[in-house]
Design a binder for these strands. Structure first.
Lengths: 135, 135
DNA sequence: CTTTACACTTGCAAATCGCAAGTAAATATA
DNA sequence: TATATTTACTTGCGATTTGCAAGTGTAAAG
């Protein structure tokens, strides 16, 4: 129902079939770097994703095994989204976007984080993956 | 005329404002890993980009200073597109997509290239940037 | 028993995409 | 010199996707 079709056998093309739009990586950013895990939290981000687009992207990400959806511990009317290992493997893609964006455009990135990513990228990737695992 | 608008001051969001679609990174892939440099060559790729979409993306990439467009040395009816340093800085993004796509989906990537990227990512990035500079 | 919180779904206009065809300038061929 | 071809687009149009506003449904709170 929500499966993106594979345009070619190229790994870049295949990645883009799933992640190649303006919203998907922002949802994953919110999970990894802001600790967000619910629909309502994703809606509050600065970029103002539309509700139907958010619902659609979450469904695709779930169908692709990038995140899991389960009823929240506290409320039964709430869902908690968590990254799978396949989802955590996307962190390097996110980090590469951060570095390029921060280098070539004016942004409000925390200088401490930027320095951390620049000087020890691999260690930082592992750190944020581990943080997301325990979130 | 072709400037994408910045949705927020987040560097990831800003990167996606420019690169976040299903085609842009494929054009850059063709330049870096296939040595392509003309409109006609980009059209021949396996994913079959539409002519109007290709023209639009090339205009955006040029307006963003990611590539330059100049009349070809041999023919005046032909243009040569070349990556700028800002464009070459996108290679790590492309490589991260390759690694994720190749890990989680079935693709036709050359095993030698994959191994090169896995075992010495930074060196490989620099190698392909240098190759593109001399193309 | 009504209100609020939360997670969506629906309807619709606007923007974008995909496909086929057409245009225009430079070059090659007869 | 006339015609055909190459190369790089542009145009038109139906189909898909997006963005925005409003509505629906269920669980918890008051």
């Amino acid at each position: 129902m929500k499966e993106p079709k594979q345009r070619s056998a190229c790994p870049i093309s295949t990645s883009l079939d799933v992640l190649g739009d303006k919203w998907t990586l922002l949802i994953l950013r919110d999970m990894v770097f802001a600790g967000k895990s619910t629909y309502g939290q994703f809606l509050q981000s600065a970029e103002k994703i539309a509700t139907n687009v958010l619902a659609d992207r979450l469904a695709v990400l779930e169908s692709q095994g990038i995140l899991t959806k389960e009823v929240a511990a506290d409320k039964k009317s709430k869902f908690t989204y968590r990254l799978t290992e396949k989802g955590l493997d996307i962190v390097p893609i996110i980090v590469s976007h951060i570095l390029w964006g921060a280098r070539h455009y004016t942004t409000d990135i925390d200088p401490g984080l930027l320095d951390e990513l620049r000087t020890g990228k691999d260690a930082a990737v592992e750190k944020y993956q581990q943080l997301a695992r325990n979130a």
